[in-house]
């Protein structure tokens, strides 16, 4: 991360935007991608973790992430429509008026179907990023929403997390149209930080935090996938519109879209 930031700063300083981010040039027409260099991130799994029989927020872990290439933009309405037209994707519940805008109202299954189809179309292997890759690519847009506690008082933990969520996201108001944030983040990815959350391949985890503070992971629960956005959110995989939250705690994503990682 540090290296990239320095590089990005350097690029800006010498007036060559995008200097660090090699845009893939493929013979087959493919989405524009951004190269993300290998790095180690402070990673915190999302899930049911317990210690001494009580729910706890798992500790951060240093997690190495291999280099990868990721789409610069979220998959657009017209791109998704091509998959629908080919019979490989299900029609989404809503289609952006401007085909260049991000496709939202898609489930994890829809996004996965698109990745399969797109891999066949382009002759490259495309997939959803895992949540660690997404975190690395999102760089400064990524926010860790967790509040670590020593498992004492659940209410205080919720109140703090809720408070943090509301403060940082702004007050909930009437729904706005899906909106990718203009501009790019320090890695050159566009659309981050708006009201569109992106599906990842990451699953809800569970496990135990042992006495010495290490994590013992159990089997993940993959019907609930992690989405990345202004905060992370866990969404059931067949949900296309998670916005109708309305509960007393927690904040749902506004819209669900996606971008893909290219494996080669």
């Amino acid at each position: 991360m540090k290296i990239e930031l320095i590089a990005a700063g350097l690029a800006a300083a010498i007036g060559v935007p995008g200097f660090w981010f090699s845009t893939a040039k493929d013979p087959a027409p493919g989405a524009e991608t951004v190269f993300i260099a290998a790095d180690t991130i402070a990673y915190r799994p999302i899930g049911n973790f317990h210690r001494n029989g009580k729910s706890v927020v798992p500790p951060e872990q240093l997690r190495p992430v291999a280099a990868f290439e990721i789409m610069k933009h979220q998959v657009s309405g017209s791109e998704y429509a091509a998959c629908v037209a080919a019979g490989a994707c299900k029609k989404a519940d809503s289609v952006p008026a401007d085909g260049g805008q991000a496709q939202t109202h898609v489930s994890w299954h829809d996004a996965t179907a698109y990745a399969h189809w797109y891999s066949q179309e382009t002759g490259h292997s495309w997939r959803l990023p895992d949540e660690a890759e997404w975190q690395l690519a999102a760089a400064e847009i990524f926010g860790d929403e967790a509040v670590e506690t020593d498992s004492g008082d659940p209410a205080q933990r919720w109140l703090r997390q809720y408070d943090r969520g509301v403060t940082l996201r702004g007050l909930p108001g009437p729904a706005q149209d899906p909106k990718s944030e203009p501009g790019a983040n320090s890695n050159g990815l566009t659309g981050l930080g708006g009201n569109i959350w992106e599906w990842t391949g990451g699953c809800m985890q569970n496990g135990e935090v042992t006495k010495d503070g290490t994590l013992q992971l159990g089997d993940p629960y993959c019907s609930a996938r992690i989405t990345g956005g202004r905060h992370r959110a866990v969404v059931i995989d067949f949900i296309r519109d998670a916005s109708v939250g309305g509960c007393a705690v927690g904040l749902p994503p506004d819209y669900l879209g996606f971008r893909l990682v290219k494996d080669g």
């Binding site: 940082l168 998670a242 927690g250 904040l251």
Partner: peptide, 18 residues
């Protein structure tokens, strides 16, 4: 804990940190 809240939301829930 975020997951729990997240899932409570049905969809999400995790606290926000934009």
């Amino acid at each position: 804990m975020l997951t729990r809240r997240a899932a409570l939301m049905g969809a999400a829930g995790v606290a926000a940190l934009p």
